[in-house]
Write a protein that binds this DNA or RNA. Structure first.
Length: 581
RNA sequence: CCUCUCGUAGUUCAAUGGAUAGAACAGAGGGUUUCUAACCUUCCAAUGUAGGUUCGAUUCCUACCGAGAGGACCA
């Protein structure tokens, strides 16, 4: 359709002896202004100031009307400062309803990324530490981006990268050793993980405030590395397994299934080898720049030599230990080795890591120029609590489990009057709770910080995930009723008026294209809200299933189309749809 | 001091350089013998400051003010 209109404009301009290479065609924000709009008249006038844009627009419209043979285009008119607006016909909309019905749940799928093999790394919680709301954020964004890319035809694998060794583990084990209640091995994964998280907080505090505890923790840290102490080995094995299994429970609830798990301890030696192989290697002899060099006993990379915006970072410390940068180096190489055909490696993290990831990426692209264009770092803002900063020391950290549990139970509270059995309520409350949290993360563009209020994310009204699910559930119950009354969907028995929902539904595929090209789920979230609102108005303004109404089967067809788009759209956000709520 | 991100209704967020800046929450009012009121509907209300580029700027550029993050041995 878009191309047809563009060609029409081109032909009209040709007849007016005007040539223009790029015709800008867009959807007007206000649905009253038609389905498509172009600003060519204004662009042409801006280039040669001879006439005024409105006059030229009138001429274009007259010419386009004369040339137009397409019955899908009903009206062409001039509006505003010189826009040419195209209004599509009733038939166009009923045909697009039919198309959605034919595609069903595959609506919006495309093949633009069919050749792409993409690995996306996200979530990255560390064993022995709590799964906090930042992880929830990374998970929501990463999972959604993964699904959007899949919907565009890409082959996507999901990866998780976790810090299985380091000081944080020693702190947690110290906490466990000091308090018997943390050693209790009965109970659920979640309980173990929460206990270990508390033990970690205890150890962290001791490390900062108590000199002898600090020494003890450093000692434990060494023993973890060299595995010399049986008791510590035992606690390590148990704690590692317990937290990793608790994470798996969470992933199931959140709807993520990882294919690859990379551990820091495994990446360290790979990274160290890369650094040593490239130590003092001169890259371009006239400027004698090198990658890694020794400075003050440490091995560093002076990235500012290559890009003034970058800075120096340590890769191997004075003590000879690899830093995170070195492990990241190893990780990247390992990822490309794991899948040699991969043409894009995406990492999703908080924006505080943006600068040093650039430094690491610079180092990698000097060593492996072939990787340079295949790495993408997606960053998101921090989640900040509305009532003050989060701090693990102050103990006001909101863990992912806690937030999920609170949200789910407050949603279950809302279902009190429903006469479903408890298991059913639990199942639906979980789906809705996840939606509430994920939507509150995905509704805004991922660049900036999110001020997070527990109350608001739990909100199920207005601009929220549950609102979307609720409109789906209502549509679903309309369809149930239609089945009972034996009204079958028929996209051909349409009424004269065009509903607002229809004017939005056909745009779904375009929204996905944009979300995919910008790696931005929020376009989908915002679109779904508009569609849901339009459907709810539609729903409120009439009775859809009505034996006396000859157009009822069209309205049922439209309701089907709405459910398909809503289900597919929510899937792209990583949200499930409840058949009732 | 330097680099990056960001300043939009009271609050939380939208707006590929375009039309009357769009929602939600909060506030004021209206709606249920009809398919789920977790809904619909009406009203109130905003682009940090000063310049510049442009036919046209919330969007691009410069300066300032303000918030956050990062800036060598933690990640």
């Amino acid at each position: 359709m878009q191309d047809k209109i563009k060609n029409l404009i081109k032909d009209a301009l040709k007849n007016l002896n005007i040539e223009i290479s790029n015709i800008n065609l867009e959807h007007p924000e206000d649905l009253k202004n038609g389905e498509y709009s172009t600003n060519v008249a204004m662009v042409v006038v801006a280039k040669n100031v001879k006439s005024n844009p409105k006059e030229l627009a009138e001429k274009i419209v007259a010419e386009a009307l004369r040339l137009n043979l397409d019955k899908n285009i009903e009206k062409i008119e001039v509006a505003g400062a010189g826009f040419v607006n195209f209004h599509l016909s009733r038939k166009f909309f009923s045909r697009s309803t039919e198309e959605i019905l034919n595609k069903g749940e595959n609506v919006g799928k495309n093949n633009t990324l069919a050749e792409e093999k993409i690995m996306i790394e996200y979530t990255d919680p560390n064993p022995f530490k709590p799964f906090h709301i930042g992880h929830l954020m990374t998970n929501a964004i990463g999972e959604s981006v993964a699904r959007i890319l899949e919907h565009s035809g890409a082959t996507v694998s999901r990866a998780n990268y976790q810090g299985d060794i380091g000081l944080h583990v020693a702190k947690a084990i110290y906490g466990i050793l000091k308090d018997k209640k943390f050693q209790d091995k009965s109970g659920s994964h979640t309980l173990h993980a929460m206990n270990i998280g508390m033990a970690y907080a205890r150890g962290g505090e001791a490390y900062e405030n108590n000199e002898s505890a600090k020494k003890e923790i450093d000692e434990i840290n060494k023993k973890i590395y060299d595995k010399s102490n049986k008791k510590i080995n035992g606690i390590y094995d148990w704690g590692f397994k317990a937290t990793m299994e608790a994470f798996e429970d969470l992933y199931r609830v959140l709807g993520t299934k990882f294919e690859f798990y990379f551990l820091e301890s495994q990446m360290a030696p790979i990274g160290e080898r890369i650094v040593k192989d490239n130590l003092d290697k001169i890259i371009d002899s006239p400027r004698s720049r090198r990658i890694f060099e020794e400075s003050d006993g440490a091995i560093i990379f002076k990235a500012e030599k290559y890009n003034a915006k970058l800075h120096t970072r340590v890769f191997i410390t004075k003590k000879g230990l690899p830093t995170y940068e070195t492990k990241e180096l190893g990780l990247t190489e390992e990822k490309f080795k794991t899948d040699p055909n991969m043409n894009l490696s995406i990492v999703v993290t908080g924006s505080e890591q943006a600068d040093y990831m650039k430094v690491v990426a610079k180092a990698i692209s000097i060593i492996h120029p072939e990787y340079e264009k295949k790495m993408l770092h997606i960053t998101h803002g921090m989640m900040k609590l509305a009532g003050g900063k989060m701090s693990s020391r102050k103990g006001n950290v909101v863990t992912g489990e806690l937030l999920l549990r609170d949200t789910i139970s407050s949603i279950k509270e809302k279902m009190r009057e429903r006469d479903w059995d408890e298991a059913e309520k639990d199942r639906i409350a979980e789906i809705v709770g996840v939606a509430a949290i994920k939507y509150s993360i995905l509704r805004s563009s991922s660049g900036s910080d999110i001020v997070y209020s527990v109350e608001e994310s739990i909100s199920t009204e207005g601009d929220s995930g549950p609102y979307l699910q609720y409109s789906y559930a209502r549509a679903n119950s309309v369809l149930e009723k239609a089945k009972e009354k034996n009204i079958l969907p028929d996209p051909h028995t349409f009424p004269p008026e065009i509903f607002e929902v229809e004017k939005l539904l056909y745009r779904f595929p375009e929204i996905i294209l944009r979300a995919a090209s910008e790696y931005e789920p929020h376009y989908i979230a915002n679109y779904l809200i508009e569609v849901a609102h339009a459907f709810n108005s539609f729903y409120a303004s009439m009775v859809i299933v009505d034996k006396k109404d000859t157009t009822s089967s069209y309205k049922v067809a439209l309701t089907y189309a709405f459910t398909f788009v809503m289900k597919a759209g929510l899937h792209l956000l990583g949200i499930k749809v409840p058949e009732k709520m």
